[in-house]
Simulated assay, not measured.
Amino acid sequence: MRGLGDAGFRDDDRGVSETVGFVLVFALIATTIAVTFTVGLGGLEDAQLAERDNNVERAFDVLHDNLNDLSRDGVPNRATEIRLGGGRVSFDRESEFRLNHTGTETAITEGGSITFHGTGDTRIVYENGAVFRMQGDDGVMIREPDLLVGDTIVYSLYGLTGPADSVGGDRTVLVTSERTDRDVPVDARASAANITLSINSSQASVWERYYGDLAGEHDQISMTTDGPADITVTFVADRYDRFVAHRTIADVGFSD
């Protein structure tokens, strides 16, 4: 027979079990909330930064069209809004595009790029009529340059000048572009002399793919990376009837 003492022990065991169960459930809930908060918050922040870079990419798409207005239509100026969202936009002078008619001593050299510095190594760049999304030294071309390849080749060259200081922070910046010159420095009929384009750029790997693909599609174009420039593109004179180069010079500014 069990005595009253045995029943008392059973009641005590039940109380201990309920307390332990409550503690375990509470600990599980607290751990779940902590993990969700830590991981979820980091994931949310990453998603916000990625969306910011996507929004800037769309803004550079508008910037591309606005600068084309200066070149194609002779519009005197354009302005493009870019929400930085903690990123930074700068004007860079490192790029160089040198157009040379091998039958003459005339060479035209222009350059300059507008760069948004986003998450990590992500950069969104406007350069010589094209827009890039770069990750380190590699990336993709989002918008292609203004180049027509056929019996007549029409090439657009952009020269940009801009401020020395970058602009950053959680604000919207207005990127202004004012045309200062627009001309046709090359209008050549087919001859024995080729026209070459030498490119030095931080986006060289993407330019190489772009012109490599064109060279594979059109016998008017050949490309090499063997030389003093990052890339040398040759427009083969006996493969086209006429080569026309349009040049647009614009001054770039950043303002609130």
Rank of each mutant, 00 (worst) to 15 (best):
M1L: 12
R2T: 13
G5Q: 02
A7Q: 08
R10C: 10
D11Y: 14
D12G: 11
D13R: 05
E18L: 15
T19F: 08
G21C: 03
V25K: 01
V25A: 12
L28R: 02
I29E: 01
A30W: 00
T31A: 14
I33R: 07
A34Q: 03
A34S: 10
F37P: 00
F37G: 09
V39P: 02
V39A: 11
G40D: 07
G42K: 10
G42E: 08
E45Q: 13
D46E: 13
A50V: 11
E51T: 09
E51S: 14
R52S: 10
V56P: 09
F60Q: 05
D61K: 05
D61R: 14
H64G: 04
H64Y: 15
D65Y: 12
N66F: 03
L67A: 09
N68G: 14
D69M: 11
L70R: 02
R72C: 00
V75E: 15
N77F: 09
R78T: 15
A79V: 13
A79G: 04
G87P: 07
S90K: 14
S90C: 11
S95K: 03
E96Q: 15
E96V: 11
F97N: 00
F97Y: 14
R98F: 02
L99P: 00
L99S: 06
T102K: 07
E105Y: 00
A107F: 04
I108M: 05
T109D: 06
T109L: 12
G111S: 07
G112H: 08
H117C: 06
T119C: 02
T119P: 08
V125R: 05
V125D: 02
Y126H: 04
A130C: 13
Q135Y: 12
D137V: 11
D138A: 13
V140G: 06
M141H: 13
E144L: 10
P145C: 05
V149C: 11
T152M: 09
T152Y: 03
I153C: 03
S156Q: 02
G159M: 04
G159P: 03
L160V: 02
P163S: 02
A164E: 15
S166E: 10
G168M: 06
D170K: 09
D170E: 12
T172K: 01
V175Q: 01
R179Q: 09
D181I: 00
R182T: 01
R182E: 06
V184P: 01
V184Y: 08
R189G: 10
S191C: 03
A192V: 11
A192G: 07
I195D: 06
T196I: 15
L197F: 12
I199N: 08
S202D: 14
Q203Y: 01
A204E: 08
S205H: 05
V206M: 04
E208V: 00
E208L: 10
R209M: 04
Y211H: 11
D213S: 09
L214M: 13
A215C: 10
E217G: 07
D219Q: 14
M223C: 04
T225M: 09
D226S: 13
G227Q: 12
P228M: 06
A229F: 12
A229E: 08
D230Q: 10
T234M: 07
T234G: 06
T234E: 14
F235A: 10
F235V: 12
V236W: 00
A237M: 05
D238I: 03
Y240G: 07
D241H: 03
F243D: 01
V244H: 01
A245R: 07
R247Q: 12
R247V: 07
I249A: 11
D251I: 08
V252G: 05
G253V: 05
G253E: 03
F254Q: 08
F254R: 09
D256I: 06
